[in-house]
Amino acid sequence: MFFLRGALFANLAALFATQGHYDQAKPFIQHALTVLPNNVQATITAVYIDLMVGRSQDAVARLKQCTRVSFVPGRLEVRAS
């Protein structure tokens, strides 16, 4: 049940973000990451939102915190689950 809720929040955040409504997307992605802290899709959506609102340091920090994303300066690798 928690996974479905997290996935719904992540999808809503992605929808708002792709439409350019970053302020509306932020609460949804925060809820998604609370429920699914290591979900790659939610993390990448959060990184996208951070980058689009000019918070590049937050985006890098978020990538470093996700255990399923390997961050090497100049390179990004995502491991399959």
Rank of each mutant, 00 (worst) to 15 (best):
L76D: 10
Q19Y: 03
V60H: 05
D50K: 01
P73Y: 09
A25R: 07
A46V: 06
M52C: 11
R68L: 09
L8N: 09
D58V: 05
T43F: 11
S56D: 12
A46L: 05
G6R: 03
N11K: 06
V40C: 01
A13V: 07
F2A: 15
D50S: 07
D50I: 02
V78T: 08
Q30A: 08
Q57Y: 09
F16Q: 07
Y22K: 05
A61F: 06
C66L: 07
D23E: 14
Q30T: 06
T43K: 11
L36S: 06
R5T: 12
L4I: 11
G74E: 04
G20V: 12
G6F: 05
Q57E: 14
F71C: 13
Q30F: 04
A7Q: 14
I29Y: 01
F28P: 07
L4C: 05
M52W: 07
G54R: 03
G74Y: 06
S56K: 13
F2C: 04
I44T: 12
P73H: 11
V78A: 03
P73T: 10
A59K: 08
F9Q: 12
V78W: 06
R55E: 15
F2S: 12
E77S: 13
L12S: 05
V69M: 10
C66D: 10
R55W: 09
P27K: 00
H31V: 04
A10T: 07
P73E: 14
A46Y: 07
Q19D: 03
C66Q: 09
V35G: 00
A25Y: 12
A13H: 02
G54T: 12
P27M: 00
G54P: 08
Q57D: 14
